[in-house]
Amino acid sequence: MKIKELLSSKLVLVSGKGGTGKSAISAALGTLGAKSGRDTIVVEVDVNRPAMNGIFGVDSQFTPKMVSANLSVSNLDWASSLTRWIVRTVPAGRLVKHLLSNKFIRAFLDVAPGNRETVVLSEIGQLVERYDLVIVDMPASGHTISLLDFPRTMLNLFSSGPIRREGERSAALLSDAGTNLVLVALSEEMVVNETIETHRRVHEVASELKEPLIFLNRSQDNLFSKNEALILSEHLTGSDSPLRTAGEWRLELEAATKSAHDRLERETSASVIILPEVTHKEGSSGIVSKLADELNNSDNHPGAGSSV
């Protein structure tokens, strides 16, 4: 049910530490959204090498590119987003070039508090107007927090002008019932720590945002029965057989999934959805279509994989 709900919303922000697979998950969600007949776009934020290039075999740019029926991708690079934003914001458009070529102003715009967040959120808001479903493959978690914190910061700092209005618009976008946050985690201690911390901070800075969903990616289901696990871990400790080593390796992965799942459930109020490891052999587009199947399944079989 959760995934279906997610796909019928307007905006899904997918956040997580680097290497958790959030780009593949964003692409999989986009694929599912497009399949359901909604005009969908998967957006990356100012990345040097868009992950969508490898997945969909395109050269993702600022201007959205259609990769299949109902599905487009875009990379909101900083320079284009900034130009567009200034064109939208500054009344006299012909001055924009002067403004942007001024090195003092560039230096200011590069570091001005909340400026990146302003520009990015504003552009995302534009896309929400144009597409049925917008999936954002967010930058690393720290940036997610500053992005979510942005409206509050702006409303606090600016008492007038376009940025204040942007702040108000963004606050409305983030508290919209059609906006969702997904946190992607792995069964690794540090990633779980960061996910719990991000979840806590999200509550702090964007309390009006809906409860996030957590995807526990690359999980292992249980191969061994309790009795078998006990034999491997307690009773054969003297054995250096490669069979036992393999069993222990597998058990360790299973235990890591269980412990990550337990902690996420205990220490956050979010729903945790378990996604299995999808092998590398199919290449990135294969991984994405498999992930899309898994996401679909997680609705049909609630608790699938959560036998841990």
Partner: peptide, 10 residues
């Protein structure tokens, strides 16, 4: 221009 964007107070 900057004033128009960021507000004069800021």
């Amino acid at each position: 221009l900057l004033g128009a964007i960021f507000g004069k107070e800021f």
